[in-house]
Amino acid sequence: MEMELMLALLIGILFTVGVYLLLRRSVLKLVLGIIFIGNAINLIIFVASGLVAGKPPFVTGQEPEPEMADPLPQALILTAIVISFGIVAFTLALKYKYFSLTNTDDLDQLTETENE
């Protein structure tokens, strides 16, 4: 069994579930879908840069140590995680606002923006 294959499969499934939830009419499911896709994409960056089951990227000198993880994707993902938290919070607030104005969770009711 190969590790990368397994993780790629996991990413695929996370993405599938994310897309499926994204296409639902319920806003809550939409938010969940965003979270799933966000996680899947973070993992894509992580896996695509090559997996090294080894030391974290801490250096003591100038030379990269053998078996050291790549620091760059980690820095990318770290910011992405925090950003997606912000997005989720914002979407939830929007969802709440939407719910409190229309009293429904159904996205299909949102076709008109002009009048409530």
């Binding site: 990368e4 599938t16 896996v47 760059l72």
Partner: peptide, 30 residues
């Protein structure tokens, strides 16, 4: 959802094959 999820899987596996000759990370590590 399944068709988009499956292409993502294939994309990830393809991305693994790309060999960076001179990854920018080396600069950061050094």
């Amino acid at each position: 959802a399944l068709s988009s999820g499956s292409f993502v899987t294939i994309l990830v596996l393809n991305a693994l094959q790309i060999d960076y000759n001179d990854p920018i990370s080396d600069f950061f590590i050094k």
